[in-house]
Design a protein around this nucleic acid. Structure first.
Lengths: 242, 242
DNA sequence: AAGTGGTCTAGACCACCAC
DNA sequence: TGGTGGTCTAGACCACTTT
């Protein structure tokens, strides 16, 4: 058997080679990259491939291009850190804030969808939803309370086998559903009665509520979620672009 | 003189034609677009151009493509509404929330940069900055209080001619600086003493503070801003993607 | 005039999917 | 096996910037 080598697009290889060149030549000084013609020679690929590689670097805000002048290194090329505009799992968010993530399950419920929920998920009135309630901890401290609802019709039975797994990963593995985007509202709020009475949260503490609707790669709404974040623990950063 | 017609890229024209086709054929039903080969015939352009047009439509989350199967319309194609991840002027944000925007100037000051400011803007300690303070109103109601600081070295004199104009537009017109991105932190907070004492804001009212650093198209930090938003008036929406 | 990136064409082969 | 989208090449012309 041959090793099942993952074939990588030439343009990706070219991109990596260019990044390598940037690092090695330490060109921060005058900030100018080789011309596209020069890169064609250096990498031994066509102009189209060079331009694809440069387009990737431009998307990642590492270089910028000016017609008639050239391609240049951005002054602050290290924009790697993820912001809220990136849809990442809660686990990753906590870890990126420097804490050790863990989960405490509060419960799984099957209920009729609220009017808002049904409207957002595109369900009929009173259709059943499965609601997952979890506390997210960052190095033992309360980071957020997450209430995620999914149409019950997506499940054959109540899915108790999720436990510590990410909801995203569970849907992908078991249902072949890939969550790709979310539309989220940011609302400063007090804790709900449930949080105060059942979970022992201080009622004077302020939270940031993210009301979110998650869509799959075909644009269908899948998860409606209400996530209450404690702003002292989770710092929200957003990378904004025009 | 000939009319100075703006030349539009063929791929843009192709994109518009495809959008037109989508609207006219009302194909929501089975969601499948013509193949690339068919689009080449229909539009009379090369495959590269068709693919550029489709790439634009994919970026705008209007279609998705699956290798070996085809190109499809997203189930929720109308994701036009702008969110916080899009860097827009305050004026546009207020207008998109359904209000009539206006500005009340609080003042323009020249001060030494604070430690945080100097660090963020890449200035030497104690270097001078020009600070613009403005109240933003939405149909007469307080929407936000904006404090924007720029290195004084960027100005020949104190710029009093800005007034109602957007700071972005002023920098572009007068200084040739294009603000392209911002990195922003979302912090729930109480009003500052200045807001309570000088501006008559209720000290018990909660605000969302956006601490922002704006970069130009070359990646240089230009504006450091603290914007206090009243969440009752401005609804923060974020479009998140993986 | 020369050099740069921006756009478009024509043609080829590949990987993946459905029949 | 045929059709689909994904990738790559070679070549051309254009718009913009600099010399």
């Amino acid at each position: 058997m041959e090793t099942p080598e993952k074939i990588e697009a030439l343009s990706h290889v070219a991109k990596e080679k260019i990044l390598e060149y940037i690092r090695e030549s330490e060109l921060r000084v005058d900030d100018t990259l080789p011309t596209e013609a020069r890169l064609m020679e250096m990498l031994g690929v066509s102009r189209h491939t060079v331009r694809e590689a440069l387009a990737l670097l431009e998307q990642e805000r590492i270089v910028y291009r000016v017609q008639g002048k050239g391609t240049f290194l951005k002054k602050r090329p290290l924009q790697i850190e993820h912001g809220l505009e990136r849809l990442a799992s809660m686990t990753d968010m906590i870890r990126s804030c420097g804490f050790e993530p863990s989960t405490r399950w509060v419960g799984i419920e099957v209920r009729s969808a609220s009017a808002r929920m049904a409207e957002q998920l595109g369900l009929d009135a009173e259709e059943k939803v499965v609601t997952f309630k979890r506390l997210r901890l960052a190095s033992g401290n309360l980071a957020s309370y997450c209430v995620d609802s999914i149409a019950a019709s997506r499940f054959d039975s109540i899915p108790c086998e999720i436990r510590d797994e990410s909801l995203f990963r569970y849907l992908e593995r078991e249902k072949g559903i890939t969550i790709e985007t979310a539309v989220s509202y940011v609302i400063p709020t007090k804790p709900t009665r449930e949080m105060v009475e059942d979970l022992g949260v201080d009622e004077n503490q302020f939270f940031i509520l993210l009301e979110q609707l998650h869509y799959d790669n075909e644009g269908r709404p899948v998860i409606y979620s209400l996530d209450y974040y404690q702003p002292d623990v989770i710092r929200f950063k957003i990378n904004r672009t025009r």
